[in-house]
Simulated assay, not measured.
Amino acid sequence: MTDRRKAGEQVRREVMGDFFVDRALNNATDFDMPLQEQVMEAAWGTTWTRDDLPRTTRSLITIAMLAALKCPQELKGHVRGALNNGCTVEEIRAVLLHAMVYAGAPAAIDATRAAKEVIEEWEKDQA
């Protein structure tokens, strides 16, 4: 295991939570484990470990990109990660409203539905 991969797993766990990371790794098969390793090293170990942007900013950028790419399932995990990083519900909503202008209404609507599901669950957990 490379240092970058170890650092990536640590940051991924801090942002996404142990449950999310354990589920991704435990559900991986011989077919998709190489993808999990690549994500851990490249995305989390190279990009998320940089100190040139705060994690809150990285989370909001990621949400915007996933909304534009119409990836609601991946967006759900990153909405929870954004909340874990200290982003507010209002900031997440603002990013999705902003995405509507640049990525289109259908993308923003799907992203908002996905985010709303996670936020409602997160708010119940906070009560």
Rank of each mutant, 00 (worst) to 15 (best):
L60P: 04
D3Q: 10
A103K: 07
H98C: 13
L60V: 01
H98F: 02
C71P: 06
Q10F: 05
P54E: 15
K124H: 11
A67Y: 10
G8D: 05
K124Y: 01
A68I: 09
A7R: 12
D52H: 12
Q36V: 01
A64E: 00
G45F: 06
M40D: 02
K124T: 08
E91P: 08
A68P: 00
G86R: 02
G77P: 03
A111G: 13
W48F: 07
R113Y: 15
L60W: 08
A94V: 12
E91F: 03
S59K: 05
M16I: 06
E90L: 13
T112H: 06
A43R: 11
Q73W: 14
E91A: 15
R4M: 13
I92E: 12
P34L: 02
V95Y: 03
V79G: 03
T46A: 14
T88N: 06
E117D: 14
E120S: 02
R93G: 06
E90R: 00
K70T: 15
T112P: 13
G17Q: 07
T46K: 14
I63T: 11
A111M: 02
M16P: 01
C87W: 03
I61Y: 04
E74H: 09
R13W: 05
C71D: 10
M100E: 01
H98T: 07
D110G: 09
L60T: 08
Q36P: 04
L53R: 02
Q126A: 15
K76T: 01
V101Q: 13
L97A: 09
A28T: 05
D3V: 07
Q10N: 09
E90M: 04
N26I: 03
T29C: 06
A108T: 12
G45V: 12
A108F: 07
Y102D: 11
D125N: 10
M16L: 15
G86S: 03
N27K: 13
T46Q: 12
M1P: 05
I63P: 11
A103T: 01
P72G: 07
D32A: 13
L25H: 10
M100S: 08
P54R: 15
K6D: 03
E117R: 03
R58H: 00
A103S: 04
Y102N: 01
M65Q: 11
A43V: 09
P54L: 14
H98L: 09
I119N: 08
N26T: 05
A82E: 03
L25R: 14
D110F: 09
D18V: 13
A42L: 14
R5H: 13
E41Y: 03
K6M: 10
T57L: 13
I63L: 04
P72T: 03
H78K: 00
C87K: 09
D22K: 09
R80Q: 12
A28Y: 04
R4N: 12
K70E: 15
V11L: 11
A7G: 10
N26F: 04
P34M: 02
T2M: 03
N85A: 15
N26P: 10
W48S: 00
A82H: 00
G86E: 00
G17P: 02
R55Q: 14
V118M: 06
D125E: 15
W122L: 06
V95Q: 11
M40R: 12
A127L: 14
D52E: 11
